[in-house]
Design a protein around this nucleic acid. Sequence first.
DNA 1: ATTATCATGTAAAAGGTTACATGATTTG
DNA 2: CAAATCATGTAACCTTTTACATGATAAT
Lengths: 194, 194
Amino acid sequence: MLKYVLLGTLNYSSMTGYELKSFMDSSTTYFWHARLSQIYTTLKNLERDGLLKSSIEPQEERPDRRVYEITQAGRDALNSWLMEPLTSIEPRKETLLVKLFFAGKLDKDVLLAQLHLQRQLYLKELRSLREQAKASIQQALHRSPALEYDAQMWEATRRCGELYAEMMITWLEEIIAMIEARNPDDAPAKRGAR
Amino acid sequence: MLKYVLLGTLNYSSMTGYELKSFMDSSTTYFWHARLSQIYTTLKNLERDGLLKSSIEPQEERPDRRVYEITQAGRDALNSWLMEPLTSIEPRKETLLVKLFFAGKLDKDVLLAQLHLQRQLYLKELRSLREQAKASIQQALHRSPALEYDAQMWEATRRCGELYAEMMITWLEEIIAMIEARNPDDAPAKRGAR
DNA sequence: ATTATCATGTAAAAGGTTACATGATTTG
DNA sequence: CAAATCATGTAACCTTTTACATGATAAT
C-alpha cells in the first residue's frame, strides 16, 4: 500500500524520499503514514521493479539528493490499481477499543482519565483537520488550478478524517457519561469522606 | 497487541487457539482480528514468556486439544497494560482513502461504482452490528450476570463500530453526491447520444 | 546550547499474511 | 456431493518498527 502512496505522489511530481515523507506528513497522515526508513526501502524496491527511476543531484556539505521519478510502467501500475474495486471493507485495528473491551474490572477513575485524554487528543486532531489541512488543500489548488478534481478528492479524504474525529468525540462523551453514571452511591468517596 | 486480546480473553476462561479464533471472530472482529496461524504462534510465545500455560486434552479421531490458561504473571501483565494510558491517537490506515486521494483523474463512473460498493458493504456491517453483535452481548450477559460492567464495555466497543459504520455511510453518500454533481454537461453522453 | 531541518541509508526484530500439510464428522 | 466445523501446526514471505550511523546549517 505504501507503494501506491509513493507512486501516486510521484505521479504529481518527482521528489526525494525525504520530500515524500514530509508530503505524507502534511497530507496523507490522516489515513496513511510511514517512517522514513520504510520509504527509503520501498523506493528502492519500486526502482528495482522498474516502476520508478532515480537520479542523483550532487550537493555540497550534505548528502546528495536522490530524486525519484515515476516511469510509464509505474503510471500503468498506479492506474490499474486505482481502477480495481475494493471488494471488502478495511478491518479496523483500534488499540483503544481492545483496552476498553477488557476494562470491565478496571478502576473507574483510571478508566475515565484515559477516556478524557483520548477526547482531548481527538479535539486537537479535529482542530488540525479544520485548520491546517483545509488551508493546505486550498493553497495547493491555488498553485495549480488544473487540479480541481484532485483537490476535490483531497478534500473528501480530509472530510472523512473530520467526520471520524467528530464521531470519536461523540462516542467518547457517550461512554464517559455511561461510566460516570455507574454506582452513584460511590460518588461521596471522591470527596475523601470515607 | 494481539498478545493482550489473547490474555484478556483467557482471563475470562481457558481455551484452545481454535476457540480463541472463533471468539475473536464473533466479538473483537470490529476492532481487532487475527489469522489462526498468528494466534498459534503468539500463544506459543506467550507460554515461552510465562504469561500462559497449556495442557493437552487427548482426543480420538482429531488432533488433541491444547488448552491455554492464563498465569499470575499473565494477569499482572494484562492489568498493568490496561492501567497505562494511551498518549496518542491510533493512526488510521484506510486503503479506500488512499485510492480516493489519488483518484482525481479516474473515470467518474468507475469511481462511483467503487463508492457505491463500499456503501453497500458498510450497510451490511451496520446491520450485523445492530443484530448479531448486539444479541451476542445480551446472551453473554444473560449467562453470567456478574459481568455487568464487562458487558457495558463490550457494548461500548460495539457502539463505536456502529457509529463508525454510520459515519462512513454518511460520508460516502456525501462524496457520491459531490462527484455526481461534476460536469453536468457531460451527462447526455451516458445516453450514448454522441 | 538545544532543537529542527535537510539528507542519506542499513540491520535487526516484530507483526502479520499466505501457503502448505493433514483429516474425520457433520450439515446443507 | 460439497462445504463447514473441528483441530493442530510450520515455513516463507511481506510489511512495518526500532535502532543504528553521520553531519552541517539555521533557528529559538
